[in-house]
C-alpha cells in the first residue's frame, strides 16, 4: 500500500511513475519497476516450467521460465509510449502437472501479475 501511495506521489512530483537515480559516484539506474508474475492452475496450485516471453511493441525481447513456486521476476526497462506484453506457454506437455492453454497479458505499470491458466 505504501509503495502504491508513493508511486502516485512520485508521479505528482516528477511527472513520471518510474525514477531514474544516479548517486554522485554512480551511474543512472531506474529504481523501480520489477515485474512479478505468479502463475496458478484452476486449483490454485503453482505451475513450474512455463515459458514466459516478453514483447516490446509485439517483438519478443526476452524470455524466462517459472520456478517451482510458479513465479517469474523480471525487470523490463519500459520506454514511454511503447507497448509491453507477455505470452505464457506450457512447453513441457503434462510434465508440470497438466497441459495448459497459452495466455497473453499486457504489462502495465503494476508490479504484480497473478495469472490463472486454464487446463487444455
Amino acid at each position: 500500500m505504501l509503495s502504491f501511495i508513493n508511486k502516485h506521489l512520485r508521479f505528482f512530483l516528477t511527472g513520471s511513475f518510474s525514477i531514474v537515480f544516479a548517486a554522485c559516484y554512480g551511474v543512472p539506474v531506474e529504481l523501480e519497476n520489477p515485474k512479478l508474475i505468479s502463475t496458478k492452475n484452476s486449483d490454485d496450485q503453482a505451475i513450474a516450467g512455463l515459458k514466459v516471453q516478453l514483447f516490446e511493441n509485439r517483438n519478443p525481447i526476452d524470455e524466462f521460465y517459472t520456478d517451482e513456486n510458479g513465479l517469474v521476476e523480471f525487470y523490463p526497462v519500459q520506454k514511454d509510449k511503447y507497448h509491453y506484453s507477455i505470452k505464457i506457454e506450457d512447453i513441457d506437455g503434462a510434465d508440470n502437472g497438466g497441459e495448459f492453454e497459452t495466455a497473453k497479458i499486457d504489462i502495465t505499470d503494476s508490479n504484480f501479475f497473478e495469472i490463472t491458466l486454464k487446463g487444455k
Binding site: S3, I5, N6, F21, V29
Partner: peptide, 13 residues
C-alpha cells in the same frame, strides 16, 4: 514521499 521511502528502505542500488 521521503518518509515512506525511509520507512520501506528498499535496497535498489
Amino acid at each position: 514521499y521521503k518518509q515512506i521511502e525511509i520507512k520501506e528502505h528498499k535496497l535498489s542500488y
